[in-house]
């Protein structure tokens, strides 16, 4: 599904990613861990097409297509979803309005009819239950005044509605309380299918107790320095990043 080959990325003159290789097959859950400033968010941004990054070497193919040549909205419509580490606020635009507009933009791309307001409401009310969010969040402005944890839940709600093929989750577990972590994990697990893949960035082994990954990678100083199974996360927890040669930030 996703094939990252020797990816080098600069911000200005500064090299951030220095040769990342990663292959994700349909249905797999990959976790990326690594010290602050290692380039994890950078990777998620480059995959989703954010401006301001220069790819100096390497390539990324997604479902057989050259991902890096696609506009960000096209990547989204083709099924690449990014749950942001820091979701932005959009004053005056209601959450439900954004989600409906997004779903319809995706449906249009797939040649499907737009969903009408009533059908959408039914859909969204069903999904919001899954994340145990109050319905009033639907009518509030996107992320405006949401607590850190509420913003993260809202990201997963959007994933649940848009049903992407590849979910990139950037520290979705950060800032969640213990109960919220379980709820969000449940939400993520409910999205797991044979086809849907995940790239989950996290700092905490705890998250992996709830969402079991197939692979764990350590990104340090712009490279994947170690890969393994879930047991790698436990080892990291015990030994720290020094152990894999990652510098602490």
């Amino acid at each position: 599904m996703l094939n990252i080959e020797n990816l080098h990325v600069n911000v200005g003159d500064k090299a951030i990613l220095k040769g990342v290789n990663l292959q994700i097959k349909p249905g797999e859950v990959h976790t990326i861990m690594g010290p602050n400033g290692a380039g994890k968010s950078t990777l998620s941004h480059v995959l989703s097409g954010k401006a301001g990054y220069t790819v100096t070497q390497g390539k990324v193919t997604y479902m057989g297509k050259d991902l890096l040549g696609m506009e960000p909205e096209l990547r989204a419509r083709e099924g690449v979803f990014l749950a942001f580490q820091y979701p932005v606020e959009i004053p005056g635009v209601s959450n439900i309005y954004l989600m409906k507009a997004a779903l319809n933009a995706n449906r249009k791309h797939q040649g499907l009819d737009e969903v009408d307001a009533m059908d959408f409401l039914t859909l969204v009310k069903d999904k919001i239950k899954l994340l145990q969010m109050d319905e009033k969040f639907l009518y509030r402005a996107v992320n405006e005044g949401f607590s850190g944890g509420e913003k993260k839940r809202n990201e997963i709600l959007q994933a649940a509605i848009l049903e992407p093929k590849l979910c990139v989750l950037d520290e979705t577990d950060s800032g969640l309380d213990i109960d919220a972590l379980k709820i969000v994990a449940k939400g993520i697990n409910s999205l797991r299918t044979e086809q849907r893949s995940f790239l989950m960035i996290t700092h905490y082994q705890r998250m992996l107790d709830y969402v079991k990954p197939d692979f764990v990678h350590v990104l340090a100083d712009g490279r994947i320095v170690k890969s393994g199974g879930p047991e790698l996360a436990l080892e990291l927890e015990a030994k720290g990043y020094q152990w894999v040669g990652g510098k602490a930030a």
Binding site: F81, I90, A102, L103, Q158
Partner: peptide
């Protein structure tokens, strides 16, 4: 970018 990432 956030909006584009959602497909708009």
């Amino acid at each position: 970018f956030f909006c584009q990432q959602r497909g708009l």
